[in-house]
């Protein structure tokens, strides 16, 4: 149930009182864990509006992704989620590929809206389940979206944190560095160091990522999964063993 830990950790980041409020959160394509984290935060009482770009029925947009980007451009989306084939220590994202341009060694899907969204939302939570030196690199081969911009470039925010399958890193934009914030069960400072290609800050003692409470788990398997079944049937089957066709 590693996914449930990631979802719970991400839900806490969404509702972190130290951050600017997330009144309107959008979730892009193929993002079941961020979507589940948003639903969990909502079912725990967070007052947030959720716009799921790929919801097949009741899609929030009547102009597709164009409307999502227009909303973000105006500053009407407070928090978005991004990932990357490579992520480096300055929170640069590479969704393009490795080797010679445009990815002659390994080609990733492409940048999607990252080169715009990363600038436009006050907060971004980075998510990549694979935590290995090939993903978390000292410097990305190509920049789809930069983590930091020089003064004078219009930008509302950058990464708040990076959630992986092994830990949570917080991002300090002023220093341009990640700090190890919590370790998922079974991980140690050493295992994270061995699996991470970039350097980051570390406190003498890093807490464990708090697992979801029993009440959280019940929400995840019940109402959160209900919301997710139509968009992410494969994920719901794998994580919660539900197909949506069970007897009510």
């Amino acid at each position: 149930m590693n996914e449930e830990i990631l979802i719970a950790a991400m839900a806490r980041l969404i509702t972190d009182p130290a951050q600017p409020p997330a009144r309107h959160v959008a979730v892009g394509a193929a993002s079941p864990i961020p979507a589940a984290a948003c639903w969990l935060a909502r079912h725990k009482g967070a007052d947030l509006r959720l716009s799921l770009l790929h919801r097949p029925r009741g899609n929030p947009f009547t102009e597709g992704s164009r409307e999502l980007f227009d909303l973000a451009g105006q500053g009407r989306i407070d928090l978005f989620f991004l990932g990357g084939g490579q992520i480096d220590g300055q929170a640069n994202l590479n969704l393009l590929g490795t080797g010679e341009w445009p990815g002659r060694t390994v080609r990733f899907p492409g940048s999607f809206g990252s080169a715009f969204m990363y600038f436009m939302t006050p907060r971004t939570i980075l998510f990549r389940e694979e935590h290995t030196p090939r993903v978390l690199v000292p410097k990305v081969d190509m920049i789809s979206a930069p983590g930091l911009s020089p003064p004078g470039i219009f930008r509302r925010g950058t990464a708040q944190a990076l959630v992986t399958g092994k830990c949570v890193f917080a991002f300090d934009a002023a220093r341009g560095r990640f700090r190890l914030a919590s370790l998922h069960p079974g991980e140690t400072a050493e295992t994270i160091r061995a699996a991470t290609g970039f350097t980051y800050d570390e406190d003498p003692a890093t807490p464990e990522t708090a697992p979801p409470s029993e009440a959280d788990r019940a929400l995840l398997r019940g109402p959160v999964c209900d919301e997710m079944l139509e968009t992410y049937p494969e994920f719901c089957r794998r994580v919660w063993g539900r197909t949506g066709k069970e007897a009510a």
Binding site: S111, A115, F119, A145, S149, F154
Partner: peptide
């Protein structure tokens, strides 16, 4: 989207925020 919106308006270009600093 912006490139197509410019075409539908019949103008030669439109501005877009962000992107500066991307290798794109």
């Amino acid at each position: 989207h912006t490139a197509l919106q410019a075409a539908e308006k019949g103008v030669p270009f439109m501005p877009l925020r962000g992107v500066i600093g991307s290798d794109i």
